[in-house]
Amino acid sequence: MDKKPIISSDMLIEQAVAIANDGRKKTVVVAVAQDVDVIEAVVEAQKTGYLNGVLVGDKSKIESLADEKNIDLKEMNIIDEPDVLIAANKAVELASTKEADAIMKGFLPTSALLKTILKKEYNLRGKETLSHCAVLDIPGYHKLLNLTDGGMVVKPTKEQKLGILENAITVSKALNLTPVRIAISGATNLNSSKISHIKDDVEFLIPKAKEMFPDVEIKAPLPFDLATSKKAAKHRNLDDAVSGDADVYLVDSIEECNLVAKSLIQFAQAVFAGVIVGAKVPVSLVSRTDTVKNKKTSLAIACLMADYYDQNNFWGN
């Protein structure tokens, strides 16, 4: 299988299918699966052929939810566990024993699922920082843009920001991107700005990143237009390896990430794939308002991440 860079949401799904066809089909376990949107996404993805789903949850509820929406569960592996907490633990245990490659959040709060995943006995904590990557396919942009972190760390310290960056790089590697081009946000591209995080970004984050991660190009501060528009970058005489060509847009707050991603989804028809990174298995979560396409691409990116971990023995033994 070739290692071409993944630059669109369609390619994400195609790549997940190619991995499955190569004999490495991933198993995704749903924790507390009595959630109709999640059931629909997993059934669809399994039909497309890039994963095997395992639904852990209240079987009778799962069946009646599926029935209401005419979703066919014949091919689906269901483990009946009506208790929410026990179901979550059973699902996580499957990932811990490597019977599942990725976890998908069902009908329980994200925080409850993460707490379960991070229990010592499951040995699934990979990195100190867990973060959320929103990988966006924006019509008009020539590649995918990974906006992070819009879901986990509220206001990162500079060390946490480095952890978020590391996780984003891992996602980029799973997408076969080389080098990984990273833009760090700022409302201005002047280093002298009064915006407080810019100093840390320039003096701490960039030198650290260059020292720790091979094969990355990184620049700060870059406003969104200079990060993602070659035309705008050229106008400002920026001819570096990042400006106008960013793979990752690392922002400074959960608000910025969340609101920018949602504005692009709402008003620019962007397709969105989200994944939580930093645990030894990728964690997929979708919301009720996501389209089926968003949900399917989210599951595809989780499969790609899981495959990247496997192929590179990423977490050791």
């Binding site: 924006i138 019509p139 008009g140 942009y141 946000s185 700022g186 409302a187 915006i195 406003p223 969104f224 237009d225 993602t228 528009s229 705008a232 922002v251 400074d252 707050s253 608000e255 910025e256 609101l259 920018v260 504005s263 692009l264 008003f267 620019a268 028809q269 962007a270």
Partner: peptide
Amino acid sequence: IAPDIDTGNSIYKAMTLYGDT
């Protein structure tokens, strides 16, 4: 009302470049 200038700026730029608006 954007919570801060970074967020306001990024939404504004994102809409300029990619928004159907």
